[in-house]
Write a protein that binds this DNA or RNA. Structure first.
Length: 512
DNA sequence: TTCCGACAGTGGGGTCGCAAT
DNA sequence: ATTGCGACCCCACTATCGGAA
């Protein structure tokens, strides 16, 4: 199959708004693909590169290369070239990769170049990624969509399910069962604005502390332990403490879901930055583990002694967890019967925050483990802080925000009467707000020449954020975590905006 | 030789609009 | 009305390469 066919279909998919039509277009393409093309065509149309990281990003790709007049590249040839590219390393590798990218782009037509750019930067922007591709695959093979989706969650990969389905038909789906040693896409949580809301929605539920660390899925099969991240990366070698802890447990075969986090000498959680830095360290794990030791803390059991627990109610899965894992290695929790016991849930949240944690996750006791989904039965509740900040500049948006000023630069007042930038945000804006702020900010613009439009610091905006973290990038030495716009405060003058001083005072645990 | 900037890739994430149910 | 998905981009951090000191 030619790459140009994929590029054309991708454009068509991007141009239609109906999901059903997107699915039909993908299904048609998948049916056409030869068996050997399948492992490439499917991930490409799901906007993913089968090779994962290959060391090519925006910078290398934005060097212009004259396109070919006629399409000639096959998807298999492109895949082979990218595999080669990803294998290049050592001195001179950057130049070599750039040369190979140049060659590939030179052999591509303009449409193909556009498609490759999207694929390699991870921004295909066709309104269809994995989930829509799964539907397309189901339609192409006549398999039930739910069964295909489940197989993908259990396999942790669309590609392997696609290959099996297109080779052997719907019967192949039965081969995909929960298997110790093969990671499953983890269940994710929705947000709720309060404990009351969460408990009201879920009724009988467990309220568990939410640790600000790195999600892990731990598989043990006898003497073998594997540790995977949320995206199923294997990080076993970086976390010897987790392997040791898993081998210490009495069970021989299990899959557990939890979080790794680092605690200080007093048993208080270290900052997310410290834990994440530790987990990211690969070159000298021994030193990293000595300086920032991490602990696994579990909250769910997916498989124990060869029994698949995914479809059991959470209450039963947790009972299995409690049998296997001693209390200190489990997330703290309390169980409430429903809104009648809301006070107990509130009290638990307050205590959790006192212990230095992020918030709580409220989980319905009856719900199964919805692998790979943002299940409605897990609701996280975190305290929200707000600030009145001043817009210092804004950046032009992309995609559906093209032509709108989107990403705001946010500043707090400083003691000398100026403003210190604390970070940026593009979140929380409705289309109406985008239109309004574009007009308003252009009125305040002092420099519109670049992609950053600087403005007179006069517009006050109310910002919600999750907390403060240290920063080397911003002048106050701190930045906001997960900042989003709540509303504009045209009733406030910039002199009434919050100051850096009050911000720092509100977060004494963070020292710039 | 050592240092440092630029780039890529990873982890954490909230809210909106739209299609489908 | 609710749910699921994709789009919109942020932050810090580590690893790596390649050129400057």
């Amino acid at each position: 199959m030619l790459l140009s066919r994929l590029a054309r279909v991708s454009q068509e998919v991007a141009a239609t708004s109906a999901r059903s039509r997107k699915i039909a277009l993908l299904a048609e393409l998948f049916r056409e693909a030869e068996p050997a093309d399948v492992p490439v065509v499917i991930p490409y149309l799901a906007g993913r590169l089968p090779q994962g990281r290959i060391g090519v990003g925006w910078k290398v790709l934005s060097r212009p290369v004259a396109p070919a007049a006629e399409p000639s590249l096959t998807v298999r040839e492109v895949d082979a070239r990218l595999t080669e590219l990803g294998g290049v390393s050592g001195p001179g590798s950057q130049a070599e990769r750039a040369r190979l990218v140049g060659e590939l782009l030179g052999a591509s037509t303009e449409d193909e170049q556009r498609f490759l750019f999207g694929l390699l930067t991870g921004e295909v922007r066709q309104g269809a990624l994995e989930a829509v591709a799964v539907e397309g695959l189901a339609q192409a093979t006549g398999a039930p969509p739910d069964a295909v989706r489940r197989a993908v969650m259990l396999a942790g990969s669309l590609q392997s399910v696609a290959e099996a389905l297109l080779a052997d038909g719907p019967g192949a789906l039965e081969r995909f069962r929960l298997t110790v040693g093969r990671p499953v896409l983890p269940m994710l949580a929705h947000s709720a604005s309060s404990v009351a809301e969460a408990v009201g929605k879920l009724g009988a539920c467990a309220v568990e502390e939410k640790l600000d660390g790195i999600r892990v899925q731990v598989h043990r099969d006898g003497g073998t332990v594997r540790v995977h991240t949320r995206t199923l990366d294997d990080i076993t070698d970086r976390l010897p403490e987790v392997t040791a802890a898993a081998l210490d447990l009495r069970g021989e075969r299990f899959i557990l879901d939890g979080e790794v986090i680092s605690f200080d000498g007093e048993g208080r959680p270290r900052s997310f930055q410290e834990t994440a830095g530790r987990v990211g360290s690969r070159t000298d794990v021994v030193t990293a583990a000595r300086e920032v030791p991490v602990s696994p803390v579990f909250f769910d059991a997916l498989s124990v002694d060869g029994r698949d627990l995914l479809d059991l109610p959470f209450a039963e899965r947790h009972a299995e967890l409690a049998r296997l894992v001693p209390e200190p290695m489990r997330v703290r929790r309390t169980v409430v019967s429903g809104p009648r016991e809301e006070d107990a849930a509130e009290e638990f949240l307050a205590r959790t925050l006192e212990r230095g944690h992020e918030g709580v996750v409220v989980k319905g006791l009856d719900a199964p483990y919805s692998a790979g989904r943002r299940g409605a039965s897990w609701l996280k509740v975190k305290p929200v802080h707000t600030l009145d900040l001043v817009v210092l500049a804004a950046e032009w948006g992309h995609g559906r925000r093209t032509g709108k000023l989107s990403n705001l630069h946010l500043g707090a007042r400083t003691a000398d009467g100026g403003f210190a930038m604390l970070g940026k945000t593009f979140k929380g804006m409705t289309d109406a707000m985008l239109a309004w702020q574009t007009k308003r900010l252009r009125e305040l613009a002092v420099d519109e020449s670049g992609y950053v439009v600087t403005v007179r610091p006069e517009l006050v905006v109310e910002i919600a954020y999750d907390g403060l973290q240290r920063s080397t990038r911003y002048p106050a030495g701190v930045t906001l975590r997960f900042a989003r716009v709540l509303r504009y405060r045209e009733d406030k003058r910039p002199e009434e905006a919050d100051t850096v001083e009050t911000l720092l005072a509100a977060h004494p645990e963070v020292r710039p």
